[in-house]
Design a protein around this nucleic acid. Structure first.
Lengths: 324, 324
DNA sequence: CTGTTAGCGCTTTCAT
DNA sequence: ATGAAAGCGCTAACAG
């Protein structure tokens, strides 16, 4: 790799001049510019971003921490973020936290050590204290950390209510819920929405924990249907579990949606790969990622309009596991 | 962020000494070491990796280029790579190329500019010439670029033959193939395997292009079954398309596997989310990622045992879309 | 318009 | 065992 010095020597100018032409900053005569450009080409020179970062204390890189890249919810988010940041000359850095606070903190440190310009975080454990020492702009995705940290979310409670109400309006009488992990706030909100609706309508509740996973949800469904054969609808805390519930029904020979209706939550692609396709509350995943990235870039560039807490609307995708 | 200088001043030693203790390199008295450690703690100091990279010309970061992170094949790979590299103190850098050579090259450049220590590439377009100027160690995943570039792959041709033979052994007579894109070598190999087996057995061929996508494969299946009602088996070029084929059958009311058998290729999770679960040729995705990462790390550390071309065996996962 | 120079934060000889 | 100093490649005053 050629350095700026070598280019300067080759073009018979100073390094400052070379710097000026590569950054298109400051005056430089047409003629010398051409000379420099030729030198750059001849030497196949590319500016070294490490040296640049060291000086500028910023790297043109943005980080991205997610709990589990194998969760089909995330790739789309990642994609969205990449699409907007790359367009502005940033490179993204993806990290997997295993939903583990220590790893999240470790990565945050690594990022700080590398002058990462900003970071988007999806985390179930982080709060504002963890971010306090950090100098880096952050935006929270999928969950609110604290008033002071901008976020992009949906209203889990309200939208979950909508899911349950869809079942109610479809005439379901015995509605069950497969819930997500206890320690994940969004999963709790969705559960609470179910409980509140059932309570208000004076309906019986049937809840079983499915850990946000397909297999576990399948087992939870078996248990539920074994104990209560008259259950005629299931609201699952996410789409992955809806797939599990559907599989359970298929295995038990229960006709969906005629004998039992299912509605999921999230809007991931899995809902469209299975038959029947799963009705779900779809988050505008791509849009949310885009918005988060835009807000982050705004904060990085000092525009304070990156301070908000954006709550996106969802869309009820009526598909084949519920009647219309 | 505190710097090494501040730590030195605080501890009343030189920066050299501080450097020695943070790197555990060179002699330093127990006593001074303690002093320095206390200073580090007091100032909450973390070494700046950018400065370090600039000097060492390496960053402890490794890059990862994939065509499309939303393809369910990749997250697992990413995970595997992360698992081994993080354990060795590396941070990984994920990039999405959109299966587009220009973007791949752009990222490669960015990586070089950041003193990335090595890169794992999954690409359908890259060849050794693109990598020639690059000083960075590379390992190719999923495809062989060139003899000189270490790779981790499977034998697409042989394993695809195995898939087709499974159908033949199951008594299928009219076997169709939904093929992947023309310009992807692996997809061509899988198609050729199908053709060669059919040729050898003197069977008729039914081929339709499914572009590696679910929707397209579904349509391809409709076309195929419309024209040839007696098709009793389909081998698809990947699992995503197997899901599409299965959906088509479900919609047409064709019983799988009784009236028609399906076998996919890859071993992604989707094959287990649908009902019936799809029989497939499973690549040891996680293992392949791990191996690639290990080879890369070896090359980075100058161990020449990172030079090989590893071909992994696959596993025929007999599930519910074929008879046993 | 162009060149000289200090310094970003760190590591590593080379002295002592 | 420790410190002084050069330098990694770049940018941005500051001179001229």
């Amino acid at each position: 790799m050629a350095t700026i010095k070598e280019v300067a020597k080759y073009a018979n100018v100073s390094v400052a001049t070379v710097s000026r032409v590569i950054n298109k900053k400051g005056y430089v005569q047409k003629e010398t510019q051409t000379k420099v450009e030729e030198a750059i080409k001849a030497l196949n020179y590319r500016p070294n971003n490490v040296a640049r970062s060291l000086f500028k204390k910023q790297s043109k890189m943005i980080g991205y921490i997610v709990p589990d890249i194998t969760n089909p919810f995330f790739p789309q988010l990642v994609r969205a973020v990449e699409d907007v940041t790359v367009a502005q000359g940033y490179t993204t850095f993806l990290c997997n936290s295993d939903d583990n606070l220590e790893k999240e903190l470790m990565y945050l440190n690594k990022m700080a050590e590398n002058y990462i310009d900003g970071v988007i975080i999806v985390s179930n454990h982080m709060n504002e204290n963890h971010l306090a020492n950090l100098q880096i702009p952050v935006v929270a995705l999928d969950r609110v950390f604290h008033e002071s940290i901008p976020s992009v979310t949906i209203d889990n409670y309200r939208e979950a209510k909508r899911a349950v109400m869809h079942l109610v309006e479809n005439g379901c009488e015995k509605i069950a819920h497969i819930s997500g992990p206890e320690n994940i706030i969004n999963s709790q909100l969705r559960k609470k929405a179910y409980q509140d609706v059932m309570m208000a309508l004076d309906r019986p509740m049937y809840i079983s924990e499915g850990h946000y996973q397909m297999k576990t949800a399948q087992e939870a469904t078996f248990r539920l249907l074994h104990e209560h054969k008259d259950i005629d609808a299931i609201f699952t805390g996410n789409d992955v579990m809806a797939v599990g519930a559907l599989k359970a029904c298929t295995k038990l020979g229960i006709k969906v949606p005629n004998e039992l209706q299912i509605i999921g939550f999230d809007g991931i692609e899995w809902t469209e790969t299975v038959s029947p396709e799963i009705t779900t509350i779809a988050q505008p995943i791509y849009e949310m990622g885009k918005k988060a990235a835009t807000m982050l870039l705004n904060r990085i560039n000092g525009n304070e309009e990156g301070q908000d807490h954006i709550v996106f609307p969802t869309e009820l995708k009526m598909r084949e596991t519920t009647k219309h």
